[in-house]
Simulated scan of single mutants.
Amino acid sequence: MSAFVFAFRNDPAVNATDEDIAAWGAWFQQLGSAVTDMGSRVGTTTVLGTSAGANALSGYAVVEAPDLTAATALAEGCPGLSYGGSVEVGELIPM
């Protein structure tokens, strides 16, 4: 198994509703033991270099999966995708 980071991105002006928060909780429960670090929501950010504008970092989590394809399949259920957000999936490289 390898570790992968899910970098959640969204428009900073979007405020999560109670329904959105419940959907995130249900999704994390569905991921179960694949989640090794629940991560955190991210507040105000500063971007150095090229800015993606409304695609700001809004949170992260770390999961275990056999490969990038499997990790990406897990990310496809992300509730943020339903309201314009995105998920960047990246393999963590042990140091």
Rank of each mutant, 00 (worst) to 15 (best):
T36V: 15
A56S: 14
W27S: 04
L31I: 13
A34Y: 05
C78P: 02
S51H: 13
A52R: 12
T46M: 09
V42L: 06
S58L: 01
A34C: 11
R41H: 05
T50W: 12
A56T: 13
N55Q: 10
G49P: 08
W24K: 01
T45L: 03
G39L: 07
V62Y: 00
W27K: 03
S58M: 06
G49C: 06
G53P: 00
I21G: 04
A61C: 13
V62T: 14
Y60R: 00
E19G: 10
G43F: 01
N55T: 12
L74W: 02
Q30W: 04
S51D: 15
T17Y: 03
A61Y: 08
R41W: 12
T69G: 14
Q29K: 11
A52L: 14
M38L: 14
P79L: 09
A56H: 01
V47P: 02
P79K: 03
F28G: 00
L57Y: 03
D37A: 04
W27I: 06
D37W: 00
P79T: 12
A56R: 09
V63D: 05
A52Q: 13
G84C: 07
N55W: 08
V63G: 02
V62W: 08
Y60L: 09
D18F: 02
G85S: 02
T46A: 13
G77S: 01
A65W: 12
G53V: 11
T46K: 12
G43I: 08
G59L: 07
S58P: 09
L74K: 00
F28H: 03
E19I: 00
G39I: 10
A75W: 06
L31F: 04
W24E: 04
P79Y: 02
V35Y: 02
T72F: 07
V35C: 03
I21D: 09
P66K: 04
D37M: 03
G59C: 09
E76Y: 12
A71H: 10
G59T: 10
G59S: 05
G49Q: 06
S82K: 02
G77R: 06
A52N: 12
T36E: 14
A65T: 13
Y83A: 00
P79D: 10
Y60W: 14
G84Q: 04
T50L: 12
A56N: 06
A16G: 11
D18E: 12
T17D: 01
A73D: 08
G84S: 03
D18G: 09
S82C: 04
Q29D: 15
M38V: 15
A70C: 05
G85P: 02
R41V: 13
S82H: 10
C78H: 01
A54V: 10
G59Q: 05
G84A: 07
L57W: 02
W24H: 08
G59Y: 02
T44S: 15
S40R: 10
L81Q: 04
A73I: 05
R41N: 11
T69F: 12
A16V: 14
G49S: 07
S58H: 06
T50D: 15
L31N: 09
D37C: 05
V63A: 03
G32Y: 10
L48S: 14
Y60N: 00
A16P: 07
E19A: 14
A70R: 01
Y60F: 15
S33H: 07
G85H: 06
L31R: 01
D37V: 02
G32P: 04
A34W: 03
G77W: 03
L68F: 09
A75P: 05
T50I: 15
T44D: 15
V62Q: 05
Q29S: 13
T36G: 10
